[in-house]
Amino acid sequence: MFSLARFPDMLRAMDTPAISTRGLTRRFGDFTAVDDITFSVAAGQFFGFLGPNGAGKSTTIKMMTGLLEPTSGQMEILGQKFTAESLELKRQMGVVPEGMALLGRLTASEYLRFVGRMYGLDRETTNRRTQELLDFMQLANEPKKLVTDFSHGMQKKLALAAAVIHGPKVLFLDEPFEGVDAIAAGTLKTMLQGMIHRGATIFLTSHVLEIVERLCSHVAIIHRGRLVANGSLEELRAGVAISLGESSDQKLTLEEIFLNVVGAGAGEPAQELSWL
């Protein structure tokens, strides 16, 4: 029942970002993979995290999901400080990590049931959701096939199914569309958009800029471990247009924004491979 007494709390919850980092840094010996990153993602946002190869995307997502300890800095998920020991927060999070975290010697349904139970779902709910997810992801036709024998695209779909089986509020996806065919990518996009409509927050890294442009409302770009851009697509477009001296009415693509922000093509002449 609605109560006016709860109004301030509700307002506060709406203001609280779903994800926020402050000074997040990770060093490997002398090499700084992620350098003092601070940003926040509002609840219900589809957030794209972009960067060239080796920029620090996966390292950042690993720190934010507890797979890697940060050298310094802090993270908050759903308004609470997140550490690797935050079990209750982990219950609200779904993750498709870089290595997909699949158990190769199980079948798809065995794996989903295993994950469901590891996230504390009861057996009945786990079985029902497993069946629904297998049907939705078109993985139900291979009931006896082991995960290790799945194609890369099928494994990605299964990893995504496992990440959402417990109905997370915050979803972290590291390259979910890599190796996925156009049909499957369409299925995944539909599912992810559905989750956003229901109020979930999605943090996504991808090299496929068209997908990010179509799905994400906000984008951050990391380059050589440092955050070089952060904002809504419109804000980034306006910023880049100003720096290029063009009219902000001109609709720049995300690819153009990305190339401009990370400075590709400038300064370093491409070496010619005369022998090719």
Binding site: E88, L102, G104
Partner: peptide, 16 residues
């Protein structure tokens, strides 16, 4: 030893 990439799941899930 047999977990492979699945070892990550133990660190991601809310299971001790």
């Amino acid at each position: 030893g047999g977990e492979g990439a699945g070892i990550q799941l133990y660190f991601l899930s809310p299971t001790r």
